[in-house]
Design a protein around this nucleic acid. Sequence first.
DNA 1: CTCCCGATAT
DNA 2: ATATCAGGAG
Length: 186
Amino acid sequence: MDFTNPYELLVATVLSAQCTDERVNKVTPALFKKYGTPQKMAKAPIEDIEELIRSTGFFKNKAKSLKTAAIDLVEKYEGEIPQELGPLVELPGVGRKTANVVLGNAFGIASGIVVDTHVTRLSNRLGWVRGENAVVIERELNPQVPQEDWVMFSHYLISHGRAVCKARKPACSHCFLEETCPKIGV
DNA sequence: CTCCCGATAT
DNA sequence: ATATCAGGAG
């Protein structure tokens, strides 16, 4: 994900819902050039935001979230990004997954393991967890991994999920976990 | 649980 | 034609 400050990471992660990072990285340069701060995003015409982010999908919901969240950031936090889970999750369009991404990657705060579609899929296939509930998965994974490794742990799983343990056609013959993986649900 | 939604791979 | 993509809200 391409970003140069916590706000950009927050915006990029909101846009990444049900959309590839590659696609997000195609719209963020123009978006950040025009509305790269909460102050600017808060005053942006909603239709303009929608047009800039259209190709990421769910663009009406995401545009409304970005604008409203920016207004909240300006009014409640002086345009700064809160460094705690609670306040972050209260922002529209920001759930636990996005909050963990921002805390871990922008501030180096190990709030929790990021559980996205890839972490969910791989954790199930590897037999570490059972089920799709992200909160439950995070609660079960957190104590199994040293806290200082949480950020990298998520990155490794997501990277492996994209390149090898793909949702549709997993490349098990090229996987270094081939021998030990129970391949649950594959 | 459903809805939001465009781009891409299969 | 359909499944999937660094999900979140009602």
